[in-house]
């Protein structure tokens, strides 16, 4: 039981927290702008690498480098939107996907160009895990879970308590009705990009901290983020956060040796869990757990 908590449940929660951050932004973008943002993963990688650059060159801690990650992802998202997505928005919805697919490639090319293909790790001291009653957990994992929870709480406050947050939810419900209510949609779209970019920057730093940084790290979490967002009901940020945690747990627990000491799923196939969850959701409950847009 203790082994399950230490080697499956806690890592699952950490991974789930990271997925939740990424998927929430994806779901917000989908809700407000109604397109699947395929560059989201590479935006995550960009954030992680910029935090890495800040952390190594300035000698600051990884946590202190998070603002640098956001300082890279926010302008990247806003520029991509202004140059590429905005002109396509009114006319051709499906083409936005292709455009974001192209932006993904451009971001990845930039990361390769500046940081090279070799994986790197955040400078971090090697510390023994904390032990509570046999439950062993790395301090950084506690911070990742708490950090993600804090982000979720802040997002909740923004969405439920502020005028801008209400406008975002209103646009998600019905963009035309929001416009005739006087909502300046361009401003709401910018705000959505900023929030999603901050969330994904944090997710990138956390993922880099949990494992390592590599240029394809973002592409690797893209499928999981989409699966989480769709599982939670696309366009519903809360559902996406919940879906992210579920997916993280499912991925880690999928290798649990439940029967005869053999893992349920070979660890090398872990990343297939997202696909299975995606297909199962599309098959059984395409609107997601929390009734997203279909």
């Amino acid at each position: 039981m203790l082994a399950f908590v230490n080697f499956y449940l806690l890592p699952g929660l950490v991974l789930g927290a990271i997925y939740a951050l990424s998927a929430t932004g994806l779901s917000l973008i989908y809700g407000v702008m109604r397109f699947a943002h395929f560059a989201h993963g590479d935006l995550l990688a960009l954030g992680a690498y910029c935090a890495f650059a800040a952390s190594t060159s300035l000698g600051i801690s990884v946590w202190a480098s998070i603002p640098f990650a956001a300082a890279a992802t926010i302008p990247a998202a806003l520029v991509a939107d202004a140059l590429f997505y905005a002109p396509l928005r009114r006319s051709l919805p499906a083409v936005l996907l292709i455009s974001s697919f192209g932006v993904a490639l451009m971001l990845r090319a930039l990361i390769y160009f500046f940081f090279g293909p070799t994986p790197v790790t955040f400078p971090r001291p090697i510390v023994p895990p904390l032990v509570f009653e046999g439950v062993r957990i790395q301090a950084r994992h506690i911070w990742i879970i708490l950090g993600a929870a804090l982000c979720a709480f802040m997002l909740h406050l923004i969405l439920s308590r502020t005028r801008a947050g209400r406008a975002m939810r209103a646009m998600s419900d019905d963009p035309d009705l929001a416009r005739i209510s006087g909502v300046a949609t361009a401003a709401v779209i910018r705000l959505t990009w900023i929030i999603a970019a901050v969330l994904v920057a944090v997710a990138g730093v956390f993922l880099g901290l949990d494992t390592q940084l590599q240029p394809v790290m973002g592409f690797n979490v893209l499928l999981a983020s989409f699966a989480a967002a769709i599982l939670g009901g696309i366009g519903r940020p809360w559902g996406a956060a919940f879906g992210g945690v579920i997916l993280g747990l499912a991925e880690e627990c999928s290798t649990y040796p439940l029967v005869d000491g053999a893992p349920l799923l070979q660890p090398t196939y872990k990343s297939a869990v997202a696909f299975v969850v995606l297909i199962a959701t599309l098959l059984l409950r395409p609107q997601g757990l929390f009734r997203g847009m279909i």
């Binding site: 419900d173 035309d176 009705l177 929001a178 005739i180 949609t185």
Partner: peptide, 27 residues
Amino acid sequence: PAESMVLRGLAYVPQERNVFPSLTVEE
């Protein structure tokens, strides 16, 4: 622009999809 109409004194209630379903009545 549609978003400017409200301040010009023009209000519009579309057919059917005329409330924000996930927002409360007060919102």
